[in-house]
Every structure is written in structure tokens, then in C-alpha cells.
């Protein structure tokens, strides 16, 4: 088991930093390139949400926690931003609160699809916390059966 915390400002240049940190942290679990790419994309989506929605128009801290456990990587990404009023609606594919900004509304759908487990906890005015896990080698195990 290994663990790490990272706290960084909600600036878009930190997206590439955050996803690469998580990818580097996950390397000892021997992920495939596909699996690593899934994780990087999911992290990028969660961090984008903190910047674009959570701290819209202002700057704040984003907290990234990672933990490895067996062949699992657990990731928690949270902000103290404005939060989500209706989480269920936010999870709907193609739903976006910012239709004028060329947002695809696919962020949560991508996180859900690319990761083994996903959950989001949020309340208006109280920030947002996304938890997701990836099991590495899951497909290889399935294929061997």
C-alpha cells in the first residue's frame, strides 16, 4: 500500500501536472498503456470540473489523494467550490450548466466509463468530492478465465 496527497491551485495549467502525477504514482502497479490513459483522462475530467465549475471565476485549492491497494488505485479529487445542486442531473450524459461555452457535458460519463468505481459527493455551496478507483489487470484476469 502506498499513499500520497497533493494540493494545488485551480489553474488550468495544473491539469497536465495532476494527471501526470497520478500516472507516475500508478506505475508500480504495472498498468497497461490503455489503463493509464483511462486514469489520466478521468483525472483530467475531475480537475477540469473543479476549475470550470467549482471555482468558476475565482481561484481555490484542489486536493488530490491517491492510494494503492493490491491491484487497485483509489483517487479522491475535491474542491471547496460552489458544489453541485442536482448531482443526478449533473451525471446525465451531455448535460451541462454551461451550454454557451462549448462544454460537451461528458465529463462525469467519461469518469464513470473509464474507471472501475466512481462516486460523487456534493452539495450547493459545500464543494465537491469525486472518488474513483481503477483495478489494473482486470481485463487480463477476465480474458484468462
Amino acid at each position: 500500500m502506498n499513499e500520497m496527497y497533493l494540493k494545488f491551485l485551480s489553474r488550468s495549467e495544473n491539469e497536465i501536472f495532476a494527471r501526470n502525477v497520478v500516472a507516475a504514482f500508478a506505475l508500480p502497479l504495472n498498468p497497461t498503456l490503455d489503463e493509464l490513459s483511462d486514469v489520466k483522462t478521468a483525472v483530467s475530467e475531475a480537475v477540469t470540473n473543479c476549475i470550470v465549475h467549482g471555482y468558476r471565476g475565482s481561484e481555490g485549492w484542489i486536493l488530490l489523494k491517491c492510494k494503492t491497494e493490491g491491484d487497485f488505485l483509489h483517487i479522491e479529487i475535491s474542491d471547496d467550490g460552489r458544489g453541485i445542486e442536482d448531482v443526478e442531473q449533473a451525471l446525465t450524459p451531455f448535460y451541462t450548466t454551461l451550454p454557451d461555452e462549448e462544454r460537451s457535458g461528458m465529463g462525469f460519463t467519461i469518469m464513470q466509463t473509464f474507471m472501475t468505481a466512481f462516486s460523487v459527493q456534493s452539495e450547493a455551496g459545500k464543494g465537491t468530492k469525486v472518488r474513483m478507483s481503477k483495478q489494473f489487470g482486470a481485463k487480463a484476469t477476465e480474458d484468462a478465465r
Binding site: 483522462t41 475530467e45 461555452e101 462549448e102 462544454r103 460537451s104 465529463g107
Partner: peptide, 12 residues
């Protein structure tokens, strides 16, 4: 690398 921001870009 591309995430959903890239999808929004292409649709735009």
C-alpha cells in the same frame, strides 16, 4: 491526450 474539453472543442 484529449479529454471532454476536446469533444466540446470539436463540436464547437
Amino acid at each position: 491526450f484529449m479529454d471532454s474539453t476536446g469533444i466540446g472543442f470539436l463540436i464547437g
